[in-house]
Amino acid sequence: MIFGTLIKQLFSKPATNPFPARYMPKSVTALLAKVAAGKATIHPPVPAPADLRGKIAYDREKCIGCQLCIRVCPAKVIEFLPENKKIRMYVARCTFCAQCVDACPVDALATTPNFLLADTDRFSKNLIVD
């Protein structure tokens, strides 16, 4: 029967991971700055593995403008900037397959474990990589 488990769970910590803040803050960056300064506390987020496929990082200097990443991107995230032969990525469209990272011949692209990308504006600074 399940009663043993029920009684055990009644007196143990719930399995739910709480949302970092009690309520959605007006500005996430402001809250994180406060936490860094020690003025506010949040529930520590669940650690993500270092090789999580999150937001793509772009090394502008290394990029040679070969456009291979644009050819393999399934979601048409990447825009080519012909004037200086560089790329711009619109993260709001990204599906985080990291195929562009595999395709890049000069390792100008890399995955980061950053997954906190929720935003109300799809063209916000946080969601455009160039």
């Binding site: 769970q9 009644l10 143990s12 719930p14 399995a15 739910t16």
Partner: peptide, 11 residues
């Protein structure tokens, strides 16, 4: 609250 706690939730 207690039902949630028994189910392993915060509630």
């Amino acid at each position: 609250k207690l039902a949630a706690q028994m189910q392993g939730r915060i509630g």
